[in-house]
Amino acid sequence: MPHLVLWDIDHTLIDTRGVGHELSAAAFEEATGQPMRQQAKIDGITEAVIFRETAKLHGLNTDRADFERFAAALTAQHIHHATELRERGHALPGAAAALQALAAANVRQTVVTGNVRGVAEIKLGIFGLDTHIQWEGGAYGDDADLRPALVELALSRSSAAAVDVALIGDTPADVEGGIAAGVRVIAVATGRSSIEELRTAGANSVIQDLTDVDALVKYVTAGSM
């Protein structure tokens, strides 16, 4: 059976080392006219929800048009600060090798991410991780609010009805989104969640990071371990 991987991005493939937060703050102020004094929870959450909940913390009620202004500003900020993102951020250990090894094993790869699509493309492109990503089959933070809906959308866009699918992510929200959509989840403890927390969330497999490429390919192509 053909295989498909749905990759999360932040803290799974890359780490922006704080640049992402700074660019979000700049985009928030551009979209709302108010400085971002604090930010809502971000781990595993889509940009649409982060923006809405952050706006509430500032006493603002926002609509889709407000979010679209924010998304456009955020994409522009990433384009403008691409050099800074490249210098301060980094691809996580094993990420490039994992993408290459899965491609060599004829595994299709796309993304399910809370990032808006423009930002997702910039982030992976900056760190040279975009070569094997089938962008049209992915789902993004400007498509839906919740992870399960994003996974379902990616499955539809990737025509994955007769495909063995594995989602790879670093948060309990990634795990829950995959389970709700009926796909296997390989969790990596490269973010703020521990191996035990990811196991408790229900991941089919949990690994410390992406450096053991052979094991990752085995998990993806041989099913749940």
Rank of each mutant, 00 (worst) to 15 (best):
P172W: 05
G141F: 12
V49G: 04
V183Y: 06
P148H: 06
L4K: 08
L167K: 05
V112M: 07
A201Y: 02
I14G: 07
A161M: 12
F28N: 08
G223S: 08
G223V: 13
I42M: 07
T62Q: 08
G33M: 09
I9S: 09
V49S: 05
V183P: 06
R37Q: 12
R147G: 01
Q208F: 09
I133M: 04
A144L: 09
S156D: 14
L99T: 08
T171A: 02
D174C: 08
K56I: 14
V165R: 05
L57D: 08
Q77Y: 00
A26E: 13
S156W: 11
A201G: 05
A104R: 14
L92W: 06
L60Y: 01
I126K: 03
A91E: 13
D66P: 05
P35C: 01
K41R: 15
A97R: 04
T211V: 12
R88G: 09
I9N: 02
A181R: 04
L124Y: 14
G33S: 07
R147P: 02
E53F: 06
T113Q: 06
V49T: 07
F67V: 03
M36G: 00
R117I: 03
R147L: 07
G177L: 04
A65E: 15
D145C: 07
H3D: 11
L99P: 03
Q34T: 14
L124I: 03
D63Y: 13
H90G: 12
L124E: 03
K56D: 07
G169Y: 07
E152L: 03
V163F: 04
T190H: 02
A40S: 10
V19N: 03
S159I: 13
R64Q: 14
L102K: 04
Y219C: 12
F28T: 04
F51H: 07
G128I: 10
Q109E: 02
A187L: 05
N204P: 09
D145N: 14
R64N: 09
I9R: 01
A91S: 13
V213E: 05
Q109S: 00
Q109Y: 03
S205N: 14
G20C: 00
G169N: 10
Q134H: 15
I122W: 02
L129C: 07
A161S: 15
L124T: 06
H11T: 10
V213D: 09
G33F: 05
V165I: 07
D164M: 07
L57K: 04
E197K: 11
G125C: 06
Q39I: 12
W7F: 11
G223L: 14
R17E: 12
G202T: 04
T12V: 00
A82H: 15
D170I: 02
I45P: 11
V111T: 07
D43W: 11
R199E: 14
F28P: 00
V206Y: 09
